[in-house]
């Protein structure tokens, strides 16, 4: 598989999904202003932008990862591309939390179920995307080797363990676990 330039392998996949996230967040944020004057337009804008926000943040790995794969990115680069929007979004969340919590509390806060959830979802998505890409490329004779390699298995294992846990009972089990550990550590 031919390896393309760094910006094609990494920067463009990350740029596209990040741009999608930034645009959708901003459109979503102005939708109530638009909706005040044109309710229907506001509703359409909020719904479409919310959909793209969800895709770019929670499903962004399905966009960035195959693009990076196709451009010949290494496994590390592919993982980096697939995690870009979840990491940016998580950084934003931690930044907001830093207004409220400081020091070790903030460090612990950055393991918030939502952050762990979005990153483990990205890993699961990447694992699935990696398998699909490998199957397709092997059929085309472009990529020799096994489909289930170590990193793929690890990504799937993390994703398949944490994603169901974070969804268990509407997310309450994982959330309460997070709070219980906080209580043990800080109280």
């Amino acid at each position: 598989m031919k390896q393309k330039m760094f910006y094609r392998r990494v920067l463009i996949p990350i740029g596209i999904v990040t741009l999608l996230m930034i645009v959708s967040i901003n459109v979503y944020n102005i939708s109530p202003v638009v909706g005040a004057a044109h309710p229907l337009l506001g509703k359409i804008l909020s719904t479409v932008s919310a959909l793209f926000m969800f895709i770019s943040i929670w499903m962004g790995a399905f966009i960035a990862h195959p693009m990076a794969f196709r451009a010949g990115a290494s496994m590390g680069e592919r993982v980096f591309a697939g995690l870009a929007t979840p990491l940016i979004w998580s950084a934003k969340m931690v930044y907001y939390a830093s207004c409220i919590y400081t020091g070790w509390e903030l460090v612990y806060w950055s393991f918030h179920p939502l952050i762990v959830g979005v990153i483990s979802t990205a890993l699961l998505n990447m694992g699935i995307s990696e398998i699909l890409c490998r199957v397709i490329y092997r059929r085309k004779g472009l990529m020799p080797g096994r489909i289930f390699q170590g990193p793929v298995v690890i990504m799937l294992l993390i994703g398949l363990t944490i994603v169901p846990l974070s969804l268990w009972n509407g997310g309450t089990v994982f959330f309460y676990m997070f709070v219980d550990i906080y209580m043990m550590l800080f109280h």
Binding site: Y28, P32, G35, A36, P39, G42, K43, S46, T47, A50
Partner: peptide
């Protein structure tokens, strides 16, 4: 629902 609310 208030005008500033949306479904999401």
């Amino acid at each position: 629902l208030p005008p500033e609310a949306d479904n999401w």
